[in-house]
Design a binder for these strands. Structure first.
Lengths: 341, 341
DNA sequence: ATCCCATTTGTAAGCGCTTACATAAAAAAT
DNA sequence: ATTTTTTATGTAAGCGCTTACAAATGGGAT
């Protein structure tokens, strides 16, 4: 019994309702421009035919997609989940659809995804962090596609950003750690190449170390991709060579959870034997035992505001000004005073 | 200095290269149908203009999108992350793009997303679980859009599925729990309405209880949305009324982690005072303390195979046969013998 | 030199929609 | 009743691409 003909078109609806395609289009897009009787006839035709507008055709004709693209580095852990969720909720409110893809922290993959999203007609783009080939910005600029950067805040960058000051946040946390008496500090950072957030977090730590006049040699830094296992491996590494640090600051919560786990496997108590901190304050941070002392980032708020701003830029009601959101340090159980030497 | 003209079109490229649009199109889509000299001229024009094909126009003309849509219930936790990642990697290999959206476990939202994806021309759809309004299946059937269900295995359903036997898996786990001597069992399930996976897991527990001739009154079940906090609340609930169960089986790892946390807050030792189990074996399960005894699901494998099958269905090289993947029980520390009464 | 076939390129017709503009109908003003 | 204004609908021109078909080009084979 299945019909052989393919999806019904505007014309099918128009024919069935006895009107022109223009009228059908108007019924769907600006219902009040059509008189009630006609509208009902049309809508019932739409209904019985099971008509759904062909998106590609709409885009071609109207040159608007009401689509926003976002490219995040990863979906594998929850770092971006909450913020993106809020972003998408807000977009939906405003009548926009979100297209997400993940770049696996690979710049060339990201570039490909950007082109794909642009080809698909994204009205605006949300990108994470500023670091990328300037050519990409040129490309986007030439096509006049509004771009907003999130998870980072760099007021002087050519592209507006909405996020937080990664450097200042980590600076503050490190100061707190040093204030507790820690002198030998280890850091497990994400890969900083092409990732301004990771890089700035490291610099925040460096700043604090310098300001407190600790010997630079007392700061050991390992870079590794953001994965639990890597956090564990880096922790081993840090604890195996030379004098052990009494505090290990991690570039994010994922690495920190790995570090905690390895510490426990090594029979070290956290925080009595070694303190460990994270960054982001994702759910993981509260689940870890001991719960993680970390930098809280207002993910949902950031997502919401990013949506607002980006839609504003697309609709030319906002000019894309950078916005800095506050971060706070959440004290839980993984940071304490160092053991007496 | 910014150019005023908008994105270059095929015609711009054609003009610059001194050929027709057809030739440019061929250069891009079937390069060997065009002689080398011409091709180079065209490609360099493409390059200097920074041309990217307009996707909507391609779709209109070619009636193919090489896009697969997937709708998952949530992105907030990692339940679907790993499987989806594998799904998308495999699709990418095969030249397809994945469009994901999340329905927040809301049937009407899911329906809207399905329509959106169809309107966007998805060549095929991946859905999670079988339970949904039959009208949706009719709609999809009428449009001849191949649909594959994952995370579930129901060989007799009208839509092919690739997944695992939720009921049998939970049956096996429950038997193991009962075998350890547990007689009073609690279950914290996800909301089963519109969610065959949740429902079948409950039935698996029921089956085992019945088969082992435990009193049905000794099985207490609470349904709650899949969130850590809800797991905790449900656990409180289970432990507060009547005789306490000695084992609490959870519908997934997220609920189980919440239950563990609450147990600890209540001063109960897991598993000495109460055993707790999960389902899915996501990363969380290993991070929890104690680590979670749970049902391992071959997420990556499922994702990969789903991609293969769905692409096959789209390209008419596969007929969409159901496939059942094995699950295994992962023993960690959260399940033990009940305390002596 | 001529003819034939294979290869390369061009021509032009859509794909399904939106929208500026034209027209028809109804309402308001005279 | 006539004219003007407003409102409702129709007409048709694209949007940027793919592709069937036609035309042109270039070798061989004769």
């Amino acid at each position: 019994m299945s019909k052989l003909r393919s999806a019904p078109t505007l014309e099918d609806v128009a024919r069935m309702a006895g009107v022109s395609t223009a009228t059908v289009s108007r019924c769907l897009n600006s219902p009040d421009r059509v008189v009630k009787a006609t509208r009902q006839r049309v809508l019932s035709a739409v209904d019985t035919l099971g008509y759904t507008p062909n998106f590609a055709a709409q885009v071609m004709a109207a040159k608007r997609t009401f689509t926003i693209g976002a490219i995040i580095p990863t979906m594998e852990n929850a770092i971006f989940a909450r913020g993106l969720q809020a972003f998408q909720e807000e977009l939906h409110q405003r009548g926009y659809t979100l297209l997400v893809s993940s770049s696996a922290y690979k710049p060339d993959l990201e570039e490909e995804q950007i082109r794909t999203l642009v080809a698909r007609g994204a009205d605006g783009l949300l990108l994470i962090g500023h670091d990328r080939d300037p050519k990409i910005y040129e490309y986007l600029d030439r096509r006049k596609i509004p771009v907003l950067v999130a998870w980072s805040y760099l007021p002087d960058a050519q592209v507006p950003s909405i996020g937080f000051d990664n450097r200042a946040a980590m600076f503050e946390l490190t100061n707190r750690v040093i204030g507790l008496g820690h002198k030998r500090i280890g850091m497990i950072s994400g890969i900083s190449a092409g990732n301004d957030r990771a890089r700035l977090r490291v610099e925040g730590v460096r700043d604090a170390v310098a300001q407190n006049e600790l010997a630079v040699s007392d700061l050991r830094i390992i870079e590794t991709p953001y994965e639990i296992e890597n956090g564990a491996a880096a922790f081993s590494n840090l604890m195996s060579k030379g004098t052990r640090p009494t505090a290990v600051l991690c570039g994010n919560d994922v690495l920190a959870v790995g570090a905690i786990r390895r510490a426990q496997e090594m029979g070290l108590r956290v925080p009595q034997d070694v303190s460990i901190t994270g960054f982001d304050d994702i759910e993981l941070a509260r689940i870890a035992t001991p719960a993680l002392t970390t930098v809280h980032v207002p993910h949902r708020d950031m997502g919401r505001k990013a949506a607002l701003e980006l839609v504003g830029m697309v609709e030319k009601t906002a000019d894309g000004t950078a916005l800095r959101l506050p971060t706070t340090i959440v004290e839980r159980q993984s940071l304490g005073r160092p053991a007496k030497p």
